[in-house]
Amino acid sequence: MWWPDATGSVAFLISGALGVVAVTRTVGLAQLKSREWLAAWTNMIGSIAFGASAVGAFITKTGVTDDALLANAGTFVGALCFLIAALLMLPRRFSPRAARA
C-alpha cells in the first residue's frame, strides 16, 4: 500500500508550505531568531523527510520495500523535526498565574 504514503506526504508538504508562507508574511523572509520562523521551517524539513520516507517505502511488484533505510530514516527525521517544531512553539516560561486565570 504505497498510495496512502504518497498522498499523506503530499498533504504534509502542502501544510508545511502554507505554514512557511504564513510565518514569512508575519515575521519576514529569514528571521533566524524568531521561534515561529524556526518552527515553520523545521516543520517543512520534517515534511520533506516524510516525503523521502514515502519514496523509500514504495513496495515493488515483488513485495519488497524499495529502500527500507530511506523509509525508516525519513520517518525518524520527520518525526524528530515535528517534535522540535512543537517544542519551539511552547511558551518560554510557564506562568502559574496565567494557569489560574
Rank of each mutant, 00 (worst) to 15 (best):
P4F: 07
D5S: 11
A6Y: 08
T7C: 12
V10F: 13
F12C: 05
F12E: 02
L13K: 03
S15T: 04
V20G: 07
V21M: 12
A22S: 12
V23P: 04
V27T: 11
L29V: 02
L32E: 02
L32N: 04
S34C: 11
R35I: 01
E36N: 09
E36L: 15
W37C: 03
A39V: 03
I45G: 01
I45D: 02
A49D: 01
A49S: 13
A49V: 01
A52L: 15
A52N: 01
A54W: 04
I59V: 15
T60M: 15
K61D: 13
T62M: 15
T62A: 15
T62F: 14
L70V: 08
L70N: 01
L70P: 00
A71W: 07
N72H: 08
A73D: 06
A73G: 00
G78S: 07
G78H: 09
A79C: 10
A79G: 13
L80C: 10
C81D: 02
F82D: 01
L83G: 04
L83H: 01
I84Q: 06
A85L: 14
L88N: 03
P91W: 12
R93I: 05
S95H: 10
S95D: 14
P96L: 11
R97Y: 08
R97P: 00
R97I: 03
A98K: 12
R100N: 06
A101F: 13
